[in-house]
Amino acid sequence: MFSSRLWGGVDVDRYPLSCISIKYIFLLLVLIVLLGCGSKTMVVLVPDTDGKTGAITVSNSAGSVDIATANQATTISGGQQSPPSTPILLEQKDINTVFSRALTAQPIPPVHFILYFISDSNELNSDSFKNVPAIIQAIEKRNSVDISIIGHTDTVGNDEYNYTLSKGRADAVACLLMNRGVLQNHITTTSHGEDNPLIQTGDNISEPKNRRVEVVVR
């Protein structure tokens, strides 16, 4: 079927079957590459900035692996049909070799300030008012252009009332910062209502520590 020539070193006139086999093997390899069986994912659990280690689950249709020990890693080679490998402990130097650029690119974590108010008002209590210069310093140190002011409530009372009160307090703090030179378009104010408490309580429980405004400087 072909004129006499060599295909992959095999004389295809004398061995036409080899020609067909090699062609199909080649097509199969192309198909495997296209299906991404050449891809590989490695997932490593490492301690966070406080030195604590959380937990991860790595899964696909072929299997699932849990890791809760620092510096352990799982690898998946060959696509979604290959289960994640049993976790192995990596040496710190090997983790650094692979991830050094990603790790050195990590920005400074944001800083949070928690402010409390005189009961049923938009006025900071005296302790919290003393924190305001520190907030300004944190903004200046980071040249921050992303400051969130978030109002929070406890689980007592009416949702609408709590939302309005906590949003009003967040706006009052924004004013304090703007009076000290922070640009309004660097500030976002919002309220999380009762849904992001500092201290978990049941419903309708008075908890002064949850009635707060949080300032996050990024």
Binding site: L34, S39, T41, D48, G54, I56, T57, N60, I76, F99
Partner: peptide
Amino acid sequence: ETPDATIGMRGTHVLVQVVGRR
């Protein structure tokens, strides 16, 4: 999400390397 698996987590720092993309 990676080409080969999904990663879920609980309060943590995770590193991912993906090579040989599709």
